[in-house]
Design a protein around this nucleic acid. Structure first.
Length: 488
RNA sequence: GGCGCCAUCGUCUAGAGGCCCAGGACGCCGCCCUUUCAAGGCGGAGAUCGCGGGUUCGAAUCCCGCUGGCGCUACCA
């Protein structure tokens, strides 16, 4: 039997990292076993429906490099893959359940339901539907009221009043639930749309899904699902309730923890490979030491039994570290393209575009091991592109030359003289400046710092002499003289 | 209130009775390298394996209880 997994998000907002992690697991499981990943849109909540969300969902998956075999955009043999287009199937299933006596119509008003729950809460009772419509008499009177008010009904499952139902979970094992604690839950809403419980079961069955991965917040509803499977005569798929991804304070990941959408990470310059790797390790591990895994390795090794049970707290610092690893390990050519694109976006507007790729290619090796986020690139190398450097007098003088502007000015003049005549190679430049430092009786590092700011406008830069070599003699000279002049 | 899930360094995790007075990674601290910053190398601090009982010659690993955190308890998913 081929494995068929599905990722079935609700289009209710921006794609969330936690959800994406589940999608990643679905993808990995499918690819590991040579099966298929199905994408299905669960838009059964008309109130929360966000029309732009589907496109965002698709984009975020594509960005992460997760591809699917059937879905709303590409179709497939079991379509449509959007639940709002499959209402007839849910109605048919509900009809069957009704006919079998496993469900009943409930005509109670929302107001009555609220009142019942409020009363239960006052009495410290578990809030549950009081089953007024479960028997014919109650239903008839409720129906009369409803029809007088022009309301329609919902369809509820007729949960057995007593007994137990047990269910198997691929991660949590077997759990038994007391049926007495389970409500007569709604399967079909009054607007004709199904609830999640009915819809996913009908679809998974029709779409031949073999493995269901979902957040473990669904675990408490699983016995309801077991009831539906049984009543419909469906053999349940393998179900795995995966632990969730939480914010740093242990609460549900939300905007106040910083970025929750993949797009924000993408825009900051996190690489899809790094995010993929990082997410793949949230709740799953290969062994006791492997941190960096390629997509292929993930696919090769991913199995359900190595998913942990406890929730994972999202740790951006580790993601950032990992991103740095990916930047350092990336093929040169690819990195240059990435840097160039990013620079074209981040550099001051007066810098002419497109950028000189050959120049980017020269500077890339100088900064690649310093950059953890693409967003940092410009700060490391903007001086290669900009001549109008902006720095303060204090920055220029630094600690070493603080209060000794005249000495600094003289030193810069001397450097300029050397720079004008030294062979244009970083090692020659370094040798010359070291020698000058000796003559000036200053520490080489102090002199270099002065020159660094004069030439780059920054106190933190790639290696100075390699940078100067790339900036070029004339531009270096101009910058040194400008700095000296500023100190005069 | 009811039901359920979870519980190893701050964080991600390894661990499926002896290999563990608990290993790796991020982060943190120190040293080395060094023109700044990184990267890299070396070293360190950091978990009485939530607590209490069992079972066992022996428990992070099995059982029970407790505590804590979280989730569900909607005509949301």
């Amino acid at each position: 039997m081929t494995v068929r997994t599905r990722y079935a998000p609700s289009p209710t907002g921006v794609p969330h990292l936690g959800n994406l992690r589940t999608a990643l697991f679905d993808y990995l499981l499918a690819r590991h076993s040579g099966g298929q990943l199905i994408l299905r849109i669960e838009d059964t909540d008309q109130a929360r429906y966000d029309p732009g969300a589907v496109e965002g969902l698709l984009q975020s998956l594509r960005w992460l490099g997760i591809d699917w075999d059937e879905g709303p955009d590409i179709g497939g043999p079991y379509g449509p893959y959007v639940q709002s287009q499959r209402l007839e199937h849910y109605r048919a299933a509900a009809g069957r359940l009704l006919a079998q006596g496993d469900a009943y119509e409930c005509w109670c008003s929302a107001e009555r339901l609220d009142a019942v729950r409020a009363e239960q809460a006052r009495n410290k009772q578990p809030p549950k539907y009081d089953r007024r419509c479960r028997d014919d008499a109650g239903r008839a009177s409720a129906r009369a009221e409803a029809e007088a008010e022009g309301r329609s009904c919902v369809v509820r499952f007729k949960t057995p009043l007593a007994g137990e139902i047990s269910l198997a979970d691929a991660i949590h094992g077997e759990t038994a639930f007391d049926l007495a604690t389970i409500d007569d839950f709604v399967m079909l809403k009054s607007d004709g749309f199904p609830t999640y419980h009915l819809a996913y079961i009908v679809d998974d069955e029709m779409m031949r899904i073999t493995h269901v991965l979902r957040g473990d917040e669904w675990l408490p509803s699983a016995p309801r699902h077991a009831l539906i499977y049984r009543a419909l005569g469906i053999t349940p798929p393998i179900i795995a309730h995966v632990p969730r991804v939480l914010g740093p304070d242990g609460a549900k990941l939300s905007k106040r923890h910083g970025a929750t959408s993949v797009f924000e990470y993408r825009d900051q310059g996190y690489l899809p490979d790094a995010v993929f790797n990082f997410l793949g390790l949230m709740g799953w591990s290969l062994d006791d030491h492997t941190e960096i895994l390629s997509r292929q390795q993930f696919i090769e090794h991913f199995t359900l039994d190595r998913i942990v049970r406890n929730p994972a707290i999202f740790n951006v610092e580790k993601l950032t570290w990992m991103n740095g690893v990916y930047i350092r390990d990336m093929p040169e050519e690819q990195l240059v393209a990435l840097f160039a694109d990013r620079l074209e976006r981040d550099l001051r507007p007066e810098v002419a575009r497109p950028l000189d790729r050959a120049l980017v290619a020269r500077l890339a090796p100088l900064i690649r091991e310093r950059v953890k986020l693409l967003a940092e690139v410009a700060a490391y190398c903007d001086f290669f592109f900009i001549d109008d450097l902006r720095y303060s007098r204090d920055d220029l003088l630094g600690k070493a030359y603080a209060g000794r502007a005249e000495e600094a000015r003289a030193a810069l003049e001397a450097v300029a003289l050397l720079v004008a005549e030294t062979a244009w190679a970083h090692d020659a430049l370094e040798a010359a400046l070291r020698e000058l430092a000796g003559r000036l009786a200053v520490k080489p590092g102090d002199l270099f710092s002065l020159v660094r700011v004069a030439v780059t406008g920054r106190r933190v830069t790639p290696p100075l002499f390699e940078s100067m070599e790339i900036v070029g003699r004339e531009r270096c000279l101009a910058r040194l003289r400008a700095a000296a002049k500023a100190l005069a």
